[in-house]
């Protein structure tokens, strides 16, 4: 008999050791998330994937699925909290979608559409985050960083390079650092072919000379909402 748990009233099968997120994903059910990626160990930092397990809040990317557990996901209560978290992401960085090359292919933007975020709600911080354009092939625009740390993990675990690191504290201090003497990307062994170069869910790590190459209407999330795409990709 296969093991199952309930997710918004639907039976979800899982194998022991799978997280709630992994099991839901395999079943084609979307749980909003930003820092989780199917190819990497869960980081559990963005908290967007918070669900209610038997009435208590928990991160679905780090919590192991257990037989018979009752999980709430897309309830009004949880989506309201997620929308508020998204609004905080949007005000603590500089997220100007009209001038961003990642627009239409951005997980943060698509998630905000999914959760019907109509405004940033809070006062804007407008932090000063200079870009790093030193590398010949890649631009780093830190204005859009959401500190998911996927680039840190990908560079260390897949590329074996350790180009990125998280550092600093607070909204204005915490940021991605570049592991080179000068702090510039050009002075690392980072390459466009690295896994870390294509892992960014938002518009920080951008290949140069390729901006806006897909027209509006044909970009990833123009076609269908992010939740539908999880459903379509399920095995």
């Amino acid at each position: 008999m296969s093991l199952t748990f309930q997710l918004d009233g639907e039976d979800i099968a899982f194998t022991p050791g799978q997280s709630i997120m992994q099991a839901a994903r395999a079943a084609g059910v979307y749980i909003p998330h930003l820092c989780w990626h199917p190819d990497f160990p869960a980081h559990g930092s963005c908290k967007l994937c918070t669900v209610k397990v038997n009435g208590r809040f928990g991160s679905s990317c780090t919590m192991e699925a257990q037989a018979g557990m009752n999980v709430e996901n897309r309830t009004a209560e949880l989506d309201d909290k997620r929308r508020t978290m998204l609004q905080m992401f949007f005000v603590e960085g500089n997220h100007f979608c009209p001038s961003c090359e990642k627009s239409g292919n951005c997980a943060l933007q698509a998630t905000a559409y999914e959760l019907k975020m109509m405004s940033p709600h809070f006062d804007m911080f407008y932090p000063d985050r200079p870009v790093d354009a030193s590398h010949p092939d890649v631009l780093l625009d830190f204005n859009r960083c959401i500190m998911c740390s996927l680039c840190v993990t990908a560079s260390r675990e897949v590329d074996g390079k350790n180009v990125f690191a998280m550092g600093g504290r607070g909204i204005l201090g915490r940021r991605i650092h570049i592991n080179s003497e000068s702090g510039r990307l050009a002075d690392t062994d980072f390459a466009l072919t690295d896994r870390a170069a294509s892992i960014c869910p938002v518009g920080v790590i951008l290949p140069k000379r390729r901006g806006f190459d897909v027209p509006i209407g044909k970009r990833t999330y123009d076609k269908s909402p992010i939740s539908e795409q999880v459903k379509e990709k399920a095995p």
Binding site: H95, P98, P120, M124
Partner: peptide, 18 residues
């Protein structure tokens, strides 16, 4: 009703904020 990016988050003119 706040209409458009600039009314909602400052938009292009807010690029001068830094």
């Amino acid at each position: 009703v706040a209409v458009g990016a600039c009314a909602i988050n400052g938009g292009l003119p807010a690029q001068r904020n830094h």
